[in-house]
Deep mutational scan, measured.
Amino acid sequence: MALNTPQITPTKKITVRAIGEELPRGDYQRCPQCDMLFSLPEINSHQSAYCPRCQAKIRDGRDWSLTRLAAMAFTMLLLMPFAWGEPLLHIWLLGIRIDANVMQGIWQMTKQGDAITGSMVFFCVIGAPLILVTSIAYLWFGNRLGMNLRPVLLMLERLKEWVMLDIYLVGIGVASIKVQDYAHIQAGVGLFSFVALVILTTVTLSHLNVEELWERFYPQRPATRRDEKLRVCLGCHFTGYPDQRGRCPRCHIPLRLRRRHSLQKCWAALLASIVLLLPANLLPISIIYLNGGRQEDTILSGIMSLASSNIAVAGIVFIASILVPFTKVIVMFTLLLSIHFKCQQGLRTRILLLRMVTWIGRWSMLDLFVISLTMSLINRDQILAFTMGPAAFYFGAAVILTILAVEWLDSRLLWDAHESGNARFDD
């Protein structure tokens, strides 16, 4: 018995066209964080690309023209004298008006014999932002004059995390709450300039795509075929072959399989920071003279006294001054041990922890910024005066060393310790 099946006739004509040209192939790229070699397709503007294995951002879609970056830099340069030299806060102490600005706080630190601690604050609040705007201006002028731009481009990517104007702005709020127990506070004209400078700096850093600047100024022929001998440069993120001198053909720094002496430098910085954190938390970090009496505060006791007036601000200072430094030390110690013992479990967790400490590390400088600003506000000789204690130097040095330890660690070593050939990683 035959089955009668109805015929289905399409209502619209289906047209099949042959592909007349070869589909576009992607360029081969190595991930600078996990060293995976993959094919990167062509990316349009405002599109980002991520590593298929570790999800690290390979290409950032946010990109401004150099002219727009230069305009932002010149605007920031105009704001800087007002943000640093004009009063941020006014207080009335014992019937006398006192003005506080950024430069005055750094000068008070240096004047009291601790120039190293003052230079830490100076670099993060004044030096690094000033280098940022002058570097962008150098790129703008240098591109037109045919100057060598490689050193500036190499420095810009590392400079971003040292620009800490946003953290200093939080420190202004913390210092205001600490001082309000002794005097009446009012915002100064410099505060508005400083807030504007923070906003412009944040926007500029978020749109400063150094890798795209490398592509514009020093374009290189990408690798179009897969080759395990391809290496990625950690300076400019170019994937290719080393030249005859073993250097990256684009930025001219040595092109090595792994960062040289990464573990040794990381261990040295980490152990030194552990040693410095002990006096930083045991010795007094601030000293207040009130009517001839002397009151010393460690980091913890200062947080407890701050909690009596504002528990939320005390929580912020606790996280930045105690929780973050010790968390960074514990995480980095764990990561280094996992590399030495070739741990194969929990790779995803370790990668996330490394990215976390990379982002939060700079916030530990908050305590030094609060001390710097408070020193310029309260300084009335023996009637009422505020000065920093010996722990300030140890704390600042420990924070900087932990930042350097994270920067010096080559994250690809975590993958080397893991089993080879993993296309995915999980716990």
Results as ranks from 00 to 15, higher is better:
residue 82 F to T: 10
residue 394 Y to E: 03
residue 245 R to I: 11
residue 215 E to S: 15
residue 376 S to Y: 02
residue 378 I to Y: 01
residue 96 I to S: 03
residue 329 V to L: 10
residue 53 R to H: 07
residue 277 L to V: 11
residue 40 L to H: 06
residue 423 A to E: 15
residue 427 D to H: 13
residue 203 V to D: 03
residue 52 P to S: 05
residue 414 L to A: 11
residue 73 A to D: 06
residue 246 G to I: 10
residue 156 L to S: 07
residue 258 R to M: 06
residue 420 S to R: 07
residue 284 P to T: 07
residue 43 I to D: 09
residue 49 A to C: 05
residue 361 G to P: 00
residue 362 R to K: 07
residue 60 D to Y: 06
residue 172 I to E: 05
residue 318 F to W: 10
residue 76 M to W: 05
residue 114 D to T: 05
residue 95 G to A: 09
residue 14 I to F: 06
residue 13 K to Y: 06
residue 300 L to H: 12
residue 252 H to E: 05
residue 27 D to T: 09
residue 14 I to H: 08
residue 366 L to A: 12
residue 378 I to G: 00
residue 34 C to Q: 00
residue 321 S to T: 08
residue 56 A to F: 09
residue 177 I to W: 10
residue 21 E to H: 08
residue 341 F to K: 12
residue 383 I to C: 02
residue 325 P to G: 07
residue 34 C to D: 01
residue 117 T to V: 06
residue 381 D to R: 02
residue 356 M to C: 11
residue 177 I to P: 09
residue 258 R to S: 08
residue 354 L to Q: 10
residue 248 C to H: 00
residue 112 Q to E: 04
residue 326 F to R: 00
residue 361 G to Y: 01
residue 231 R to N: 11
residue 400 I to E: 04
residue 228 E to C: 13
residue 18 A to S: 07
residue 212 E to T: 15
residue 305 S to R: 04
residue 116 I to Q: 15
residue 326 F to P: 03
residue 258 R to F: 06
residue 415 W to I: 08
residue 410 D to E: 04
residue 225 R to E: 14
residue 116 I to T: 11
residue 47 Q to W: 05
residue 373 L to H: 03
residue 88 L to C: 02
residue 362 R to S: 04
residue 70 A to G: 12
residue 224 T to S: 13
residue 252 H to G: 03
residue 191 L to A: 12
residue 370 V to W: 00
residue 337 L to E: 08
residue 427 D to S: 10
residue 176 S to L: 05
residue 408 W to C: 04
residue 100 A to Q: 02
residue 183 A to P: 00
residue 350 R to Q: 10
residue 77 L to M: 08
residue 394 Y to S: 03
residue 350 R to S: 06
residue 70 A to E: 14
residue 243 D to T: 11
residue 135 S to I: 01
residue 276 L to R: 00
residue 418 H to K: 15
residue 383 I to K: 02
residue 375 M to D: 00
residue 75 T to W: 01
residue 224 T to Q: 14
residue 323 L to F: 06
residue 43 I to K: 11
residue 358 T to P: 04
residue 54 C to H: 00
residue 91 I to H: 02
residue 409 L to W: 04
residue 336 L to P: 05
residue 148 N to K: 04
residue 266 C to T: 13
residue 19 I to Y: 04
residue 260 R to A: 08
residue 259 R to M: 14
residue 87 P to V: 03
residue 241 Y to K: 13
residue 169 L to Y: 02
residue 195 V to S: 11
residue 401 L to Q: 09
residue 20 G to M: 06
residue 282 L to A: 13
residue 127 G to Y: 01
residue 192 F to V: 10
residue 69 L to Q: 05
residue 237 H to T: 12
residue 163 V to H: 10
residue 196 A to M: 13
residue 97 R to I: 13
residue 103 M to T: 05
residue 278 L to Y: 02
residue 316 I to S: 13
residue 57 K to I: 08
residue 186 Q to K: 15
residue 356 M to F: 11
residue 124 C to L: 05
residue 303 I to R: 00
residue 283 L to V: 09
residue 52 P to A: 05
residue 278 L to G: 13
residue 234 L to K: 11
residue 342 K to I: 11
residue 390 P to S: 09
residue 27 D to M: 07
residue 424 R to K: 13
residue 263 L to K: 10
residue 91 I to S: 01
residue 255 L to M: 10
residue 25 R to E: 10
residue 284 P to G: 12
residue 314 A to G: 09
residue 190 G to Q: 01
residue 298 T to N: 12
residue 75 T to N: 13
residue 122 F to D: 04
residue 423 A to W: 06
residue 156 L to G: 04
residue 129 P to D: 11
residue 237 H to S: 12
residue 423 A to L: 10
residue 40 L to S: 08
residue 352 L to C: 10
residue 106 I to N: 03
residue 321 S to C: 13
residue 309 S to P: 09
residue 3 L to S: 09
residue 396 G to R: 00
residue 316 I to A: 15
residue 121 V to P: 03
residue 67 T to S: 04
residue 346 G to I: 14
